[in-house]
Amino acid sequence: MRVLVYGSGQLAQMMYLAAAPLGVIVSAVDVVTETVVNPISKKATGVPLHRAIEESNAITVEFEHVPEHLLLDADKSGKLYPNVASILAGADRVREKALLVKNNIPNCEYLLIDHVDQLDDVVERLGEKVIFKASRDGYDGYGQWRISSASDLVNVRKDFALLDLKKVPVIAEKMMQFDREISLVGARSQDGQIACFSLAENLHHEGQLHVSVAPITQLTEALQKKAKDIFETLATAMDYVGVLAVELFQCGEELYVNEIAPRVHNSGHWTQQGCSTSQFEQHIRAVLNLPLGSTELIGTSAMVNIIGCTAFSRDLIGIPDVHLHWYGKEVRKKRKMGHINVVAKSHASLGKKLKQLIEFLPVEYFPKLESEATRLENEKN
């Protein structure tokens, strides 16, 4: 069996590695050159794209910002999973908000801005603390503006005057006073089978994910069920096939959807060592309509992103149950170079292990790690 992935970054690479033991061959598409490449070496395979589509049993994506003409070409084959509408909902915040509203999914209060004069009503409607998000091509903190008082709108107005807001509108969201950011990664197969992983707790720095911990601390069955109900509603409404990530704000016992990602997701990388089936294998299973794998936990896990740095000691893999995943990229500021998965028996022991890990890392690139390690170390479970 063959799977063709649009996008040739680390997610395609990890799908390739997860698919190999199943006897599934994964190829990737460099969406800039429209060339079929090997997901590991990135070298062209010599297979024309039209033939790769014909020879594939399933076609999928590693990110939602695939050029639309490529998605439509892939869709004609009848083998694209998830479907085009689902991918576009993840790529466009206007479509995403419409999806949430249509399905009565709680989300942040918002306004659609497609003209700079609409900024006049923002503070009155949403309050003084607002985050503005470009409806397309914004991720990892890019394409975002924040205000904490009405006076901050002066600079936002200047920036927006330079944008084509009709072409790419902006979503203005009321900043929520949430307790924490969590996410649920799950999968739905072609025949409607659904399997969700445990909730993960996510720590961000400058708009970028730095650490995920799963399961979340103080996890209750009610909270997991509430998140799963949201996942099932969205996945069923979209007739979704594959792995889907739902990012959530927790406010007390209530959950509000922040974003959806129609693909394998950074906050699910911990599943590689922390679960019976990784999110990458699960995605391959789902798009090929194979039985979904068990999402049973192997332990308590943390995923630590390596961002913009290569200067750390590989000796960190000498710590028991610490695993390095390297992407082979050229270093660049804010670029995800790899990640580290850590597995332990409890949150407290996970905290101790993260303290050990810190000794091998340049702390300036891991600003959330020490405080998170201390928090987990004090957990009683």
Rank of each mutant, 00 (worst) to 15 (best):
F132E: 07
S135A: 14
F197R: 05
M238R: 00
V31Q: 02
V322W: 03
V123A: 02
A214Q: 09
G308T: 03
A172R: 01
K133E: 12
K226L: 02
S151W: 09
L163Q: 15
H323C: 05
E201M: 01
N381V: 14
I298L: 13
I131C: 13
L234P: 13
K226N: 15
I194K: 06
R285I: 06
A214R: 09
T45D: 07
V342H: 04
L288C: 03
E96P: 03
T60Y: 07
A44M: 04
I298S: 12
L70W: 07
R335K: 03
W326R: 07
K133T: 08
S8D: 12
V101R: 09
Q10R: 02
D315W: 13
M175I: 15
K174Y: 08
I216Q: 11
V26Q: 01
I230H: 06
P67A: 06
I319D: 12
Q250M: 10
S8P: 06
L292M: 03
D239T: 02
A286P: 08
N305T: 08
K336Q: 10
E173I: 00
S346Y: 14
C196N: 11
L234K: 15
E359Q: 08
T220H: 07
E253R: 13
R314P: 14
V101A: 05
V123C: 06
D120E: 12
L219N: 12
F197C: 04
V211M: 07
I317P: 13
A161W: 07
L70F: 11
R93Q: 11
Q218R: 15
G141A: 09
H115F: 01
F178I: 00
R375Y: 12
P215Q: 06
T300H: 15
N381D: 15
L361N: 03
Y16N: 11
R2S: 00
D73L: 11
A195E: 11
R188W: 07
A222M: 04
I260A: 04
S77R: 05
